[in-house]
Amino acid sequence: MQKHSDEALVAYLDGELDAAERAHVEAWLDAEPAARDRLLALSDQAGLLRAAFDEVSSEPVPERLIAAARGEIAPLRGDGEVVVLRPRRSAAPVETRRWYVQMAAAAGLFGLAVGVGAGYLGGHTLAPAVPPADRQTETVATNTWLDNAAADYRLVVNAGADSMLDVPAGGEGNDALQKISQNLPQQQVRLPDLKPWGLTFRGARLVVVDGRPGAQLVYGTDNKAIGPLALIIGSTKQPDLAPTPGRRDDVNLLYWRHQGRASVLVGQGNIGYLWGIANDVAWQLDAI
């Protein structure tokens, strides 16, 4: 590498130089204003580059890619084979979950859970094809839903959870749930128990989901890798949707729809934890 070169400046910006090389570049920058201007331009360019592609990574991932990652759809340029799923077995879930939760808890819980990841995110079937126009409307609605979910989460976190809650939790939180449920037209809100994850229910807020009232359940924890978290549950008329990751700036979201219920788990922690917790939540909401 030439000492006075764009290569050196770029490597300097990327933190790829050793101490001696760094000192040499800094001496060069001290001596030549033109080099400083060039460094500044390159630095601005890096920020612009990241911004230009960031919106791609914060978009919801298309279902077809999630299905592909699970091996559930026919190859893109395949030989025309149709992929079908075996019929589901009905007995396994409870034991599997207990094994998973107990094992995670016994192992100090969280470190192990990240590697193991999402628990059950495996084998859902694909939703029936949706016409393009409907799909577009659905995408807009989903984006709005996620934007609101992220904004509601920030509101609670920034304000400090308790001051924003419509119904602070007392005891096990069932009273709070009952009060929130009274304000929801169509559904009884259930409270997933996330204590095995070290998450404590703090209270609930009324929010709007898909144009209808919904509940934002707020959980707190001392574990910065996980929380705080918010789970938003509402009703929806949109078709079922497999668990899908999303992102709004520094907020991670996992969202899904199932039998008229729309759920989104929101947090700023590790996405691996979110997958695991979302899986646990989905199981509990169906099982309770």
Partner: peptide, 16 residues
């Protein structure tokens, strides 16, 4: 569609 995830089923191609 079911949201019940991963109960051990694996994709099976139509050809078996």
């Amino acid at each position: 569609m079911s949201l019940r995830w991963n109960y051990g089923e694996q994709p099976v191609h139509a050809a078996g």
